[in-house]
Design a protein around this nucleic acid. Structure first.
Lengths: 211, 211
DNA sequence: TCCTGTGAATTAGTTCACAGCG
DNA sequence: CGCTGTGAACTAATTCACAGGA
C-alpha cells in the first residue's frame, strides 16, 4: 500500500491527476477512465494505472474511477488532508508574488511568515504579513510551527540559511536559489531554477532548428 | 557529435555545469576534474563525463578540463552564444518579478515585450517596458522577433494563447500556467508548476515522517 | 463488452570498471 | 601515476499486453 520508494515523477503525476480530477468534479463528471485522465494529463492510460497501482486499486473494471473518491484518495496519498505552514526566506519581488498568490492558499499552503535581511524591507507589510528580520529566523520557525520553507534569495546566502532551517528541524524546502544545497539525509529539497529552464529551451531551439 | 536525442536531464545538468564552471573561472581556477565538478553539482564524476561525452571529448587525461574552454563549449552546446528575445504573456505580479529580474539579462535572455488583457494594466510601464494589449500579440511577435514566450496567465486562457503563439511560429514556451498544453510536434514546452512542487514536498513530509 | 490491474518486456538513464593517454 | 572516455552492466521507468472482474 505504501511501498518503499515511489519515483518523484510518479508523485508529480499524482498531483496532476488530482488537479484534473478536481476539474472533472467541478464539471459534474462523476466517473473517469484512465484513458481520459491520461489524455488530460499528457500521458498514457497504462501510466495512470501503474501510478495508482502503487497505492492500491481504486477503479472499477469496465467503468473507470469514481471522480470524487479518487480525488480524496489522492489527497490522502499526497498528504493534502491537512494545511501546511510556509515561510518565505527573502522578500524580493518574486517572494512578493508568491506571498500574495492566492493559489497556494487554495491548495492548502499558508504563508505564515516572511523574513529578509535588508533593514529597508523589514517592517513593511504585504497584505497581512509583515516582513521580519532574518536574525529572528529561529524564533519565528518555532513560534509559527513552520512545515515548509521557500528560499527566494540569491545564491550566496542560501546554504547558510538552509543550515539554520535544518538545525531547527525544517525538512521540506523549495529553493529558487541557483545553487546546489547540501542537506542531511531526511531533508527534502526541490529546486526551481528559471535560468536553467530557459537554457534548456535554448538548447532545444538550437538543436531542433539544426535537425 | 550532435547525437539524435539527448535526455532532458542531461541538458539540465550541462546548464548546471556551466554555472559552476563560470564560478570556478571567476575564482581563477583554470582546470577542473569531473569529480570536482560533480561534487559541486551534486552528481557523480561518471555522470559528468558521460554527459559531456555525448558532445565530444573536452578533457585531458590525468588533468581534467580547462575551465574557460569547457565553459565556452557548453555555451555553444546550449546555444548560449547568442541572445534570446523573450515575451511575457500576462502582466501579473509573477510576470513583474520576472520582467525586472536582472538574472535573465545576465544569462542572455532579454524581455522585449509584455502583454496582458486587462485594460487597467495596459499602458503601464515596468522600467522601460510598456504593457501592451494582448490583442496585438501577433503584431508584436513579428515586430519583436520573439524567440521564447513565457506564459504567466491563469490556466483558462493558456491554451488559446499557446495556439496563437504556435501559429506565429514560436517554438519555445515556458509555462507557469497549471494546465497541460497541447502543441504540435516541434514546439517545446517546459512547465514550472509551483503548486505541484509544494504538493510533492507534502507527499515527502507525510511519507518520510511515517517511515 | 469495457476498462482495470499487473506481471513481463522494453526502453531510458545511471553507474561501473577499466583501457588508454598525457 | 591521475583522470578521461566509454562500452558493458545495472537499475529505474515506461509501455505492452492480457487475464479477469463489473
Amino acid at each position: 500500500m505504501l511501498p518503499r520508494k515511489i519515483a518523484d515523477s510518479t508523485v508529480r503525476r499524482l498531483a496532476m491527476y488530482l488537479r484534473f480530477l478536481e476539474e472533472f468534479d467541478t464539471q459534474g463528471q462523476d466517473t473517469v477512465s484512465s484513458d481520459a485522465l491520461a489524455r488530460r494529463a499528457g500521458t498514457t492510460s497504462a501510466q495512470v494505472r501503474k501510478d495508482l497501482s502503487f497505492f492500491g486499486s481504486f477503479g472499477k473494471r469496465g467503468l473507470g474511477y469514481d471522480v470524487p473518491a479518487l480525488a480524496e484518495r489522492l489527497r490522502e496519498i499526497l498528504g493534502l488532508v491537512r494545511r501546511y505552514r510556509v515561510i518565505l526566506i527573502g522578500a524580493g519581488r518574486l517572494a512578493g508574488a508568491l506571498a500574495t498568490f492566492s493559489g497556494f492558499g487554495a491548495r492548502g499552503f499558508d504563508v505564515v511568515a516572511v523574513v529578509d535581511q535588508d533593514p529597508i524591507k523589514i517592517g513593511k507589510r504585504w497584505d497581512t504579513l509583515q516582513i521580519q528580520d532574518v536574525t529572528r529566523l529561529e524564533a519565528i520557525l518555532r513560534a509559527e510551527q513552520v512545515d515548509i520553507a521557500i528560499l527566494v534569495t540569491p545564491g550566496d546566502p542560501a546554504q547558510g540559511l538552509v543550515d539554520r532551517l535544518v538545525r531547527e528541524g525544517v525538512t521540506a524546502i523549495l529553493s529558487f536559489a541557483p545553487v546546489q544545497l547540501l542537506v542531511p539525509e531526511g531533508v527534502d529539497v526541490k529546486y526551481v531554477n528559471l535560468a536553467i529552464e530557459l537554457e534548456t529551451l535554448s538548447y532545444g531551439l538550437r538543436h531542433r532548428s539544426h535537425a
